[in-house]
Simulated assay, not measured.
Amino acid sequence: MTKNEIELAPNAALLVIDVQKGFDDASYWGPRNNPQAEANIAALMDAWRETGRPVVLVRHASRTAGSVLAADHPGHAFKDFVADRAGQESLLITKAVNSSFYGTPDLADWLTAQGIGQLVVTGIQTNMCVETTARMAGNLGYEVLVPLDATHTFDLAAGPAGPSLTADQLATATAVNLQGGGFARVVTTAELLGA
């Protein structure tokens, strides 16, 4: 194996984080990046199902009043392409914070019980729940792969008078943070599908 090749474990887990209808509300979130994210996530879900590898679906249940991701809001539901593939997942986690490791049931306990040491982390938002989960997974000793093109995020400002970054700038920062910081290896969907 060369330095750039990817070797996927037979039980590598695919985490699909917060791919929920509420994120389609542009009036709530603002401009997004990577319009191919959903197609890439779907392709990875299909590949994982075909190879019998475990898929973990994570859903955010916001506690913030009026959130489009609140459990009682229609936006809490998975996007159709995920819902259409649901039932094949090995685990469904509900969380109310950024890290998928702070949800129910406990992700780390399940991974340990299954003997899983390699994670592929996808979903929404790149710089929030995806990055937080990948960082924590790296800290916990998992081998973490993040196909950045199977994630997306939104433009973000630090407040009315604060600095702002575009979604693409935030995704680039996430890639630098994860790979440069030694938390995860940033890859592409095509590289994973070819592994």
Results as ranks from 00 to 15, higher is better:
N98C: 10
R32A: 15
S62E: 01
A26E: 13
A150T: 00
P163W: 02
A12S: 08
A108D: 15
R32K: 15
T94G: 10
P31M: 01
P10N: 01
T133F: 01
G123W: 07
Q125F: 07
A71S: 12
C129K: 08
E143L: 13
G75P: 15
A157D: 12
Q125M: 12
R53W: 05
A134I: 00
A113N: 04
K21Y: 04
M1A: 14
L119S: 05
A42G: 08
D72P: 09
H152L: 11
A65R: 08
G138A: 07
N177K: 06
F81Q: 01
R185H: 10
H60R: 09
H76R: 11
S164K: 15
D18R: 07
D109N: 03
G103V: 02
A13K: 03
T64M: 05
S164C: 09
G52K: 04
F183M: 00
F78A: 08
L44M: 08
D109H: 07
L57H: 12
C129S: 13
A26N: 12
A195L: 07
A83N: 08
R49V: 11
T151N: 02
V130A: 00
A86W: 04
E5C: 11
N34E: 02
L44V: 02
R49W: 07
T174F: 08
L57E: 12
P10G: 03
K3S: 15
L156A: 12
E89V: 03
R85M: 01
T104M: 05
W110F: 08
A113E: 11
T174P: 12
R59K: 12
A190W: 05
V120R: 08
D25W: 13
S27Q: 14
A150P: 05
D80P: 13
L69P: 15
D84C: 00
N177P: 10
T133R: 02
F183N: 03
A150C: 01
N98K: 14
A161P: 06
L165V: 02
T153N: 08
A13Y: 02
R59D: 06
C129M: 01
A86S: 15
S62F: 04
N34T: 03
N34H: 05
E38G: 13
W110E: 05
L140H: 07
F81P: 06
D109F: 00
S62C: 00
V146N: 00
L193E: 04
E143I: 06
G22V: 05
T112E: 11
N177T: 15
V97M: 07
L14R: 06
P74Q: 05
T188P: 03
V186G: 11
M45G: 06
E7W: 07
H60D: 13
G22E: 04
R32L: 09
I93Q: 10
A167W: 05
T188F: 06
T153A: 04
G75K: 04
L14Y: 09
D80W: 02
A195Q: 04
I17L: 11
A158Y: 10
A12P: 01
D168R: 04
L178P: 13
L156Q: 14
G22W: 12
N4Q: 14
G181A: 01
T132E: 03
Q20G: 05
A96D: 15
H76E: 10
A39W: 10
N34R: 03
V176T: 15
Q88E: 09
D149G: 06
T126H: 08
N127S: 13
R63M: 12
A83R: 13
A61M: 08
A83E: 14
